[in-house]
């Protein structure tokens, strides 16, 4: 188990390899379909949000608001990442992202961007919304809540020991590509 604390450095990220189990601690920002589309189309990050040397987490959490206006995260697992494939590489490059957390893996363009810019893809356990919500120690802020709605907003979360697995590293390796190729070959034998 490798402990990773934010903010990251390129060196620390390049030291990771496919199959490493990690636990992430620090401030992360969520962003999914609406945010990726917005950034891809040239949108600016709002003041207070920086992805540089940080994480974008593909997640649409369940949030409950207390009477004093503060938020409690009651469910927060990763969403399917492949939908962000058309935009992810550009966002990694333009915003200096060091790690993407999601589920299901990503494709060749993200793989290439990870290699070129020093970024990794961290795979969370899909559906494990309660285990992962327990890792969210504080909801620090929310951005674009009105514009994008709660699941699609940018949530600023303080996480502690968030478990994930490196499935795309910064050296051009992808567990998803390996497993797909191996399972395809196996199926060809069994069909």
């Amino acid at each position: 188990m490798i402990k990773l604390s934010l903010p990251f450095t390129e060196e620390k990220i390049r030291a990771l390899k496919v199959g490493d189990a990690v636990e992430v601690s620090g401030v992360v920002f969520t962003g999914r379909d609406a945010v990726h589309k917005y950034l891809h189309e040239g949108g600016k990050l709002p003041p207070g949000v920086s992805l540089r040397d940080g994480i974008i987490y593909h997640c649409g959490p369940v949030m409950m608001q207390h009477d004093d206006g503060s938020w409690k995260c009651t469910a927060a697992g990763p969403t399917t990442s492949i939908r962000e494939e058309p935009d992810q590489g550009q966002i990694i490059r333009d915003f200096g992202v060091r790690a993407v957390i999601g589920k299901g893996g990503m494709g060749d363009r993200t793989l290439a961007a990870c290699k070129e810019h020093g970024c990794v893809y961290l795979h969370g356990v899909g559906g494990a919304a309660q285990v992962l919500a327990e890792c969210v120690k504080k909801v620090r802020n929310v951005y674009f809540l009105k514009e994008f709605g709660s699941p699609e907003a940018i949530w600023e979360l303080e996480v502690e020991n968030f478990p994930a697995v490196v499935t795309i590293d910064a050296h051009g390796n992808s567990l998803h590509r390996e497993i797909f190729a191996a399972s395809q070959a196996k199926l060809a034998q069994l069909i």
Binding site: C59, G77, G127, P151
Partner: peptide
């Protein structure tokens, strides 16, 4: 905790 198994 009587909370959603998955956030989706």
């Amino acid at each position: 905790k009587s909370q959603p198994i998955c956030q989706d």
